[in-house]
């Protein structure tokens, strides 16, 4: 099935585990400064390290990165990082809802939760990207993005440090694209 490119995107959602931090940093340092859409990032955090991730990303990023407060409205050209110990959900009106409900796939934030809620709220007006990771979290979520006609990209397992996350996803469905990190950056800059 060839998906029609929508006139605009309500959001780009990126998921990955703690190991994808350097890749996310690379993407944000190479993304064009006038990128138009909101980027929502859900990364697994190491339990005892509660801070530093945001500062690290902001140091290199071309776009400003925030850990959103509950009910914050998403804006184009900004990056929203799921805060430690909260699940991040996207509401129908493009605001963020946070939740401390039970861990999903041993994770809070859980990538599945963010993907599920974004898929429900954004439908075809989103891009979902799943990066390297050592956990199955994210696989079912990005499949749901696909089922609701969002555009899906899975990082090529050959380019992943740990490929469990991406391989789990590829077992579940065929994403629109399987890309290397360089290709993901080019893709985002072409939107």
């Amino acid at each position: 099935m060839v998906k029609n490119k929508p006139a605009y995107y309500k959001g780009i959602v990126i998921g990955g585990s703690a190991g994808s931090f350097s890749l996310v940093t690379k993407i944000l340092s190479r993304i064009k400064p006038d990128f138009k859409y909101p980027i929502i990032i859900c990364l697994h955090r190491l339990k005892h390290i509660r801070s530093g991730l945001l500062e690290g990303l902001n140091l290199k990023s071309n776009l400003s990165v925030v850990e959103p407060y509950d009910k914050l409205r998403l804006e184009g050209g900004k990056v929203y990082l799921a805060p430690s110990n909260y699940h991040l959900f996207i509401e129908f009106d493009s605001t963020v809802s946070l939740s401390t409900e039970e861990v999903l796939n041993h994770s809070r934030p859980s990538i599945d939760h963010t993907f599920f809620s974004a898929a429900t709220s954004f439908r075809e007006k989103m891009v979902g990207i799943l990066l390297t990771g050592a956990n199955k979290d994210g696989a079912r979520g990005i499949k749901d993005v696909h089922n609701k006609n969002g555009f899906t990209i899975v990082q090529d397992p050959k380019t992943c440090d740990v490929d469990m996350m991406t391989k789990s996803a590829l077992q579940l469905f065929n994403p629109d694209k399987v890309l290397s990190p360089e290709e993901i950056i080019d893709f985002l800059n072409s939107l």
Binding site: F89, I90, E91, F92, S97, S99, E101, H113, F116, S117, T120, S121
Partner: peptide
């Protein structure tokens, strides 16, 4: 309650 959240619950 927040729509998306309560629906999911």
């Amino acid at each position: 309650y927040s729509d998306n959240s309560i629906q999911r619950r």
